[in-house]
Design a protein around this nucleic acid. Structure first.
Lengths: 231, 231
DNA sequence: CAACAATAGCGAGCAGTGCTCTTGGTGCCC
DNA sequence: GGGCACCAAGAGCACTGCTCGCTATTGTTG
């Protein structure tokens, strides 16, 4: 007997293969056009056989969603790790730019995770972790700034942090003791704006509004960095 | 003969009726679940008969898209007109809040216009006008501030406006003569953030992040107002 | 090593979709 | 009133997700 069971191994292999083909279809045609039968056809198997591996089309999509979140998170983290850890603004830029670059390169995967959610679809817990990676990268870098004393956690004290989820600040390493703080809220807002810009660009809302999306984006990223208090 | 032809009148009537039923289906089940056949069934007609009024499902959706943009725009404009014209910040708040309120009340319609676009779908020109209404309301109010001398068009001169579409500033009434200006770019950014926040809220991305979406939103709206230079 | 049972794959089939085409009727305009 | 444009209907095509019963393989265990 091969360790962990031979059967389980080939099963995992085929599961991965199905997901790979599905991801290719998603990338070229979009989530709405992703057909289980088409995937099965390409793999040379009956459509009913696929259901041994994914109970439903939604389950297949969930896998692709998790993969997309992970790919995006990895791209952002890798870009960030390539710049000096002490240069906060450079890290900020790296994360933001890498996010946009990944999104532009994978528009359908991006739309899958940041576009309209599927009607009857509730994101399972497996997606929440990967989904948080970019936001956490952003928070971490600001937390580093606070620790180093270059980011003032008491600036712009509107008390907006109290509107955030309990324990969020602690979870991402931001100071949570000052009830007047707005640092976490400003971070969340910057994170929101980051994806808002990318969504608007990819979904066509900047048509006839922004001519040079890259330059507009870079300018905004600097502005956001300033808003969260980066030196 | 009744003016404009009796036939044309009942045709227009039935066209509107189909759209109404479709809008109800959209509102309750989402765009993905909108079925031409189901609409036809509810109207007691054969599915093929609907094609006399809408050449395809996409055309029906386009109508709903235009209607949604118009409904949102009307809601924003009406809210704005209810406050004093000279109180720019109040007008800003009114437009932003009304936009969010409408979106929360019509999540599926909102998702239709600000979610992931349909794969093979290109927005026809008829949508661009209605789509611009909220953005134009925002710009108009800032332009009023510039005209009144309460908004400084030369603040934060990063020159970001040059990345925008040619003629945009003129189109929305913002000053366009200063090449160093970033006023239009900041306005576009605020507009982007507004919809980014609403999308994140409606699409579930603020789960475990923001506890009180309304308060968080209101705080952000003030911050955006300040960013665009409103007194 | 052989019998067993778990499992993979298949094909037919159901209910639904968008869309087309033909066929027959009905209301409108000259 | 006659002719004609328009309109509704129904059948049908190609596709979808998903289920079910069957067969055959194949890893595992007595």
């Amino acid at each position: 007997m091969t360790a962990a069971g031979t059967r389980a191994r080939v099963r995992a292999e085929l599961t991965r293969e199905i997901a790979d083909v599905a991801r290719r279809h998603l990338a070229s045609d979009g989530a709405a056009a992703l057909s289980l039968r088409a995937v099965a056809r390409e793999l040379g198997m009956a459509s009913s056989a696929v259901y041994r591996y994914f109970p439903s089309r939604d389950d297949l999509l969930t896998t692709l969603i998790v993969d997309a979140y992970d790919a995006l998170g990895a791209a952002a983290e890798q870009a960030e790790s390539a710049v000096a850890r002490t240069d906060l603004r450079a890290r900020w830029r790296a994360v933001c730019s890498a996010t946009r670059t990944w999104a532009v390169a994978h528009p359908h995967e991006y739309a899958l995770i940041y576009g309209s959610p599927v009607p009857g679809y509730a994101a399972p817990d497996t997606t929440t972790g990967p989904a948080a990676r970019v936001g956490e990268a952003l928070s971490r870098l600001i937390a580093d700034g606070v620790a180093a004393g270059t980011v003032d956690p008491a600036a712009d004290a509107t008390g907006a942090d109290t509107a955030l989820a309990a324990g969020l600040a602690v979870r991402v390493g931001l100071p949570a003791d000052d009830p007047g703080s707005s640092l976490a809220a400003r971070t969340v807002l910057a994170w929101t704006t980051l994806f808002g810009m990318i969504s608007f660009e990819l979904f066509g809302h900047t048509h006839n509004v922004v001519a040079d999306n890259g330059r507009y984006f870079d300018d905004a990223v600097e502005r956001l960095a300033t808003m969260v208090g980066l030196p």
